[in-house]
Amino acid sequence: MSVKQVSIFLENSKGRLAEVTRILAREGIDLRALSLADTSDFGVLRIIVEDPDRCLAVLKDNDYVARVSEVVAVEVEDRPGGMSRILDVLDEAGLNVEYLYAFVAKAGKNAVVICKIDERERALSVLEAKGIRTISSEDLEST
């Protein structure tokens, strides 16, 4: 199972990140997780929100280039080696992680790791086969 991520193109200049978060705040959109990757020119803001489709519509209304894509979300036990095990499984299967970022789920003590993997379907089945729990958008709501 996978979750929907919203990614947004931002220029790497003063105040751009603040402006987009201000717009989302005004619309009552809660950021569950956030990651920013950047170069000297531009950045890509990736966020996990409750309602990605509405979030996308809000962004487009404000002239941002943004898109919704499916990413793999994995629950990671909060103990040494938790992350390493997951990466080992993916590595053994020859799967390449484009990027990843983590956040702590609301109630639980576990962390959630978001991974962008090209062969998403295969990654999901490899992880399931090794007993690693992947999370859906619905799961995320209740965590």
């Binding site: 991520q5 898109r67 484009e98 990027y99 962008k116």
Partner: peptide, 12 residues
């Protein structure tokens, strides 16, 4: 543009 955008820095 929408068509050029990617969530991966490498593509951009």
């Amino acid at each position: 543009t929408e068509a050029l955008f990617s969530d991966e820095i490498r593509d951009l």
